[in-house]
Simulated assay, not measured.
Amino acid sequence: MSAAVDFEPAGELKIGQVGIANLRIRTLDVSRLVEEMRGRVQRAPKLFARAAVVIDFGGLTRTPDEATARALIAGLHEAGVLPVALAYGTAETERLSEALGLPLLAKFRASYERDESGTAPEAAAPAPRREPEPVPKSAAKGAPPAAATPASNSAPGMIQSTPVRSGQQIYAENRDLTVLTTVGAGAEVISDGSVHIYGPLRGRALAGAQGNEQARIFCREFHAELVAIAGHYKVMEEIPKELRGKAVQVWLEDQQLKIAALD
């Protein structure tokens, strides 16, 4: 009898703000983790080559020893990414970070991730109370009706009226973001709510940056390098070719990122 094949990734990668990725270790298998990251770099070299990565051991029952952690860090370097910190979790993680000479990042994980019970970690700030915005008349083919998008009581949606150029980052904190023109290649737009782009999207768009899984991305002309909602992402190489250049919406459903054309 042949052995069952394990298709679950050993490490769950999520994209956060300022271009930092969080690699949460699910299975402490160094060679497997390194091969997964090498594959990610090969599929999207412009995105992941020399990318800053926070290593998160919170998905394990035990914190690895120093030798194993060093082997993982060396392997990730060899795969083409840069481990820059550990995600804070326990006192053992803190001691490990000191031994490795890496800083701890306490807020990164809590800013978008919920624990297995579905509740926000204690370190996470409570999500602001928000009002729903009108749903666009056009709906995605095969997509459910657009859910109400959180928008802050105190802050109106942010409007970007000039092009977002390569290397530029726009962040709408606790509100939606509307871009009236182009998001260029190498540019990044981030919102704690939804992102609406009325021109071509050639760079990256991240919605629900603080964990709002109801956030969406709407784009008139889709050529994205990356799109993400609440840390769940897809890169250009994973996006169906028939959607490129089309008007689309992006949403999260059952922890899976969905992309569909708008009528």
Rank of each mutant, 00 (worst) to 15 (best):
V84S: 05
R26Q: 15
A99H: 09
P126C: 06
T68Q: 13
T68E: 13
A148K: 13
D176L: 04
A140V: 08
N22W: 06
P121F: 02
R130K: 14
G186M: 06
S152I: 00
P132N: 11
A120P: 05
A155D: 12
R95C: 08
R24V: 05
P145A: 12
E36A: 06
P64D: 12
T90G: 11
V84K: 07
A215F: 01
R38C: 02
V235C: 10
T181N: 08
A110I: 02
A260W: 00
A185P: 08
V183G: 02
L226T: 06
G245N: 11
V135Y: 00
H223F: 10
N22I: 07
A205P: 04
R95I: 04
Q169L: 11
S138C: 08
A120W: 14
P240M: 01
G211P: 07
T90P: 12
V189A: 00
A74P: 01
V179W: 00
S154Y: 15
K107A: 15
R24L: 05
Q160K: 10
L13I: 13
K241F: 10
Q214D: 15
Q255I: 01
T162P: 00
Y233R: 14
G193F: 00
F218D: 01
M1W: 08
R244P: 03
R32L: 12
E116V: 11
D176I: 01
K14M: 11
V248F: 05
E122C: 11
I25E: 09
A91N: 10
S111P: 02
P240Q: 09
V34M: 05
P128I: 02
I20Q: 07
P150A: 08
M236D: 14
L13D: 06
E66R: 14
V34F: 03
L206M: 10
L104Y: 04
I73C: 13
G101V: 04
P121K: 04
V54T: 12
L177G: 03
E221S: 13
L60F: 07
P128T: 08
A123V: 11
G231V: 03
R109D: 06
E133H: 03
A140I: 04
E133G: 14
L96D: 02
T63M: 13
L28V: 06
G118N: 10
L252H: 03
A261F: 05
D56C: 04
E237M: 10
N153C: 08
I159E: 15
V183Y: 00
A49Y: 12
A44Y: 01
A71C: 02
L60N: 11
R165H: 12
P150I: 01
G11V: 15
V81F: 03
A106Q: 11
T162I: 10
E242S: 13
S97R: 08
R202L: 04
L104R: 11
E94C: 07
V164Y: 00
I217Y: 00
Y198R: 12
Q169Y: 06
E35N: 12
I159H: 14
G58H: 06
E94S: 12
G203L: 02
D254N: 15
R165I: 09
R202W: 00
L13V: 13
E225L: 03
G59M: 05
E237S: 15
A209W: 05
I25Y: 03
L28A: 14
G39E: 09
V54G: 03
P103L: 03
Y171L: 12
L96V: 08
E35A: 15
P9R: 03
E78P: 04
S117Y: 09
E237N: 15
A4E: 11
I197Y: 00
V189D: 00
I55E: 02
